[in-house]
Computed example of a mutant assay.
Amino acid sequence: MKILMLCREPRLYSCQRLKSEAEKRGHSMDILDPNRCLLKLSSNRPHFDVYYQCNGKENCYLLPKYDAVLPRFGTASTQMGCVVLRHFVAGGAISLNDDQAFLRARDKWQSLQLLQQAGVLVPQSILAGSEFSAKSAVAKMKTPTILKTLNGSQGIGVMLAEKPQSAVSILETLKEAKVVTLLQDFIREAKNTDIRCFVIGDKVVATMLRHGQNGEFRANFHRGGSAEKITLTIDEQQIAINAAKALGLDVAGVDLIRSNQGLLVLEVNASAGLEMIEKTSGVNIALEMIVCLEQKYQLLNNK
């Protein structure tokens, strides 16, 4: 296959691992920034052309036809990345994941709604309209309270308010800045840990327990968290699989947390990083992803 990865940072661990595993299996892979693409729709032919402009250059060139696309762009590139992804799929490429699933996962509130609708348990969460009183909204929650911006990643945009007054102050500030924010229960009994599952297709291929560093309530790798390999029960794995399916994702990083009410899904990531979970679990997740892409390609071409 000729594969395109949509990513702004080709040097990232995940990008290099996926490229390496793809090439070992005889495929070629380009890694390109979706923000440097120009999309063209022709009036007289059903072609979906894409032109690319390299950094610091005025000239652009027509990109070739790709068999498959791997979307790995960050939150700042979600809109353009999904538009470019849709363009390539319309032109005949397959993808892991598609643009609509990507958009669902990137909107934290919409993803929580879809998870709840699918019967997947999530922490108590609320989203208040811009004219709804911040004080009244916070009064509906327990304390401490977690506040999350809808489009953050790697723990950025996630805040902990120990007291109601602090939560009100933060929420009012974010509302003034027109940053849409949801409120969520703080799961104290989890003791600053959560579980990251990597789901590919209909199975959990790797799992790790993440620990927040020195009292940090966020256990993300980018916030200095550490991790250890763990094994979930079949029922617990099914929760992660159901979460990915609820959003229509082929590949997902599903974050779980143990609560007094049972295992809850915190969020689902459409382009989860590979570094920490590969090194912790010892699983070659990049290879698993390429194999999944191959299987999807073969299935499409055998129809």
Rank of each mutant, 00 (worst) to 15 (best):
D33K: 09
G56D: 04
G26W: 14
R45Y: 07
K24Q: 14
Y66N: 03
A22K: 06
L62G: 04
Y52H: 07
P34A: 09
H47R: 12
Y51P: 15
E21T: 15
N55W: 00
H47V: 12
Y66Q: 02
P34R: 10
P71A: 01
N59K: 08
N35V: 07
D30P: 00
Y51L: 14
L38H: 11
Y61P: 01
Y61R: 05
S20F: 09
D33H: 13
K40Q: 14
P46S: 06
K57D: 08
C54L: 09
Q16Y: 02
E23F: 05
Q16M: 00
K19F: 01
L32A: 03
L62P: 04
S42F: 14
N55P: 10
D33L: 05
N59A: 08
C54W: 12
C37T: 14
L63R: 09
H27E: 10
R45M: 10
H47I: 12
R72D: 02
P10A: 01
D33P: 14
P10C: 00
Y52G: 03
L39V: 11
N44F: 10
Y61D: 02
Y61V: 00
C54R: 13
N44I: 07
P64V: 01
D33E: 09
Q16G: 06
D67L: 03
L38A: 10
L70W: 08
S43N: 15
R11P: 07
G56P: 11
L41R: 15
P34T: 05
Y66I: 05
S14I: 06
R25D: 10
D67C: 06
D49V: 11
R45F: 04
A22M: 06
R45I: 03
Y66K: 02
N55R: 08
E23D: 01
E58S: 14
L41Y: 15
M29C: 03
L63Y: 07
V69E: 00
R36K: 14
K40V: 15
R72C: 00
H47F: 13
D30W: 04
K24T: 11
G26T: 14
D67K: 03
L62M: 00
L18A: 05
P10N: 05
R72V: 01
I31C: 02
H27K: 08
R45D: 03
I31D: 02
K19P: 06
P10D: 02
N44S: 11
P10M: 04
Y66G: 02
L39R: 13
F48E: 12
C60P: 09
F48Y: 15
P10G: 04
D30N: 11
R11W: 07
Y13I: 05
N59V: 07
P46W: 10
N44W: 08
K19G: 07
K57W: 11
Y61G: 02
S28D: 06
A68I: 04
L39C: 12
K40Y: 15
A22G: 03
C60Q: 14
C15H: 05
I31Q: 03
Y13A: 02
L12A: 05
L18H: 05
D49R: 14
Q53A: 11
C37E: 07
N44C: 06
A68H: 02
K40P: 10
L12W: 06
S42Q: 13
V50F: 09
A68R: 01
L18P: 01
P34M: 04
G56Y: 06
K40L: 13
D30E: 08
L12D: 01
S20T: 10
A68S: 05
Y61C: 03
L18T: 03
L38Y: 13
Y13G: 00
R45Q: 12
R17Y: 04
R72P: 00
S43A: 12
